[in-house]
Nucleic acid binder design. Structure first.
Lengths: 158, 158
DNA sequence: ACGCTAACTTCAGAATTTGAAGTCTGTCAA
DNA sequence: TTGACAGACTTCAAATTCTGAAGTTAGCGT
């Protein structure tokens, strides 16, 4: 396959991974959800070198996940804000948190639901019947295109 | 910070990213959830070079996310299976799927809940009141350690 | 004019990845 | 018993990417 083809894969997971499946991107997103907006703050909190950081921020803006906004004209100053598309990645960060907390120990991040005030540990649930979901409770049926892509690779000439 | 320190960060998200925040690891996990077990199949479906794949599989086994099992003595044959810890990453893959499907278009993966038979698109919900959750509905309160780690970096000498 | 902040860019050396080829163990068919 | 084949890797050189330090640009404040 080759990593650069992931973006055009028939699998939505692959397509997502191509955009955000990178440790630096994920760290940047974590920061963004905590309210970080400025270049130097991203740098300090993620530990990315400025070179790397500017590449990733550019890429995230190109992908429509962040938006670069000039918040001061003189001197020129910029900030990076999550778009709706970017905000849509919140569940990914939260599920990473859940897993990190459950399986890796160490200190934690406490989540409180504004709506009801409860301290929560949100998991995936069935929107139809409300049951908590895990890998074993769900059957995934992949698209025809994706099926073809996979078969092709089994004995393929690629 | 430096990427290799992420594993010891006070942030559960960082700790998780250190283990699974890599495109190849995520692709391998996607495959594992679809039932792939053998080296060559992982290779064909993820497109990773054998070198890279063997590194990542080793790392995933070391981290207790996969388990290498000999399924045939003569000739020696091995398979890679998800552990409980690995299965715990299912929500991460699913939330990536959700986002990929919602924001990147292309073909899809249909999920059916075995319990109630419904075709679903599972999201995060509050386990207390059942409401669907998004970034804006939840307040994150980080641990003291994590708070310290962040302050330290603001003006720090690091 | 000097120091300082924010937001970057540049660069060289180090590390990682890619892609192709090769290895090892053993099975099976002729 | 030779040859073809499968599974699970390893090796290697060339290309790419990352790290860490240093430098740049624009403009404010004193």
């Amino acid at each position: 396959m080759g990593r650069s083809d992931l973006a055009n894969s028939s699998c939505p997971v692959s397509r997502a991974i191509e955009r955000v499946g990178d440790p630096w991107v994920l760290m940047i997103l974590r920061e963004a959800f905590v309210g970080t907006r400025r270049f130097d703050d991203f740098q300090a909190q993620t530990g990315a070198s400025p070179h790397l950081l500017s590449q990733r921020l550019k890429q995230l803006c190109d992908d429509g996940i962040l938006r670069r906004r000039r918040y001061c004209d003189h001197p020129p100053r910029f900030e990076y804000l999550l778009t709706d598309k970017g905000r849509g990645l919140w569940p990914v960060i939260i599920t990473l948190r859940n897993w990190g907390q459950e399986w890796l120990g160490g200190s934690s991040v406490r989540l409180t639901h504004k709506g009801c005030g409860a301290v929560i540990d949100p998991g995936l649930t069935c929107p139809d019947c409300g049951a908590e979901l895990s890998a074993r409770d769900v059957v995934a049926e992949i698209s025809e295109d994706f099926e073809k892509e996979r078969k092709h690779r089994k004995g393929g000439t690629e």
